[in-house]
Amino acid sequence: MHELGIVFYIIRDVKQVAEENHVKHVSAVVMDIGEVSTVIPSYLTDCWRWAADKEDLLRGCQLKVNTIAAVTHCDGCGRDYPTVQHGKTCPHCGSSQTWLLRGNEVEIKEIEVSETLNNVS
């Protein structure tokens, strides 16, 4: 449900980077989205299409999503395990003294810009 809000944030950031680099059109935006970030990639790309096409800079621009697997570290036994499968409780030793190592990312990784369209060097 908050994907549209996140899309507005992405657009704001991409616009700023485009301006700094004198880019007139962006052909793709690449996102790193963690498995447990609460962002649903299909909702994000749907919201993206709706909002991005309203901007000259981003018309037709593709949103590519890299999914980052969630990994939790256990302080009890020192091992790591996949978060989505086991949640907060360590499958190795049963401890709940665990914390998320990665998988919470909502990051703009990079943007792709066509050189012929933009005449950039």
């Binding site: 996140i6 950031d13 991409v14 909502v106 990784k109 990079e110 792709e112 810009v113 933009n118």
Partner: peptide
């Protein structure tokens, strides 16, 4: 295609 790296949390 030119890639511009951003690497920034939304």
């Amino acid at each position: 295609v030119k890639i511009i790296e951003i690497k920034k949390s939304v």
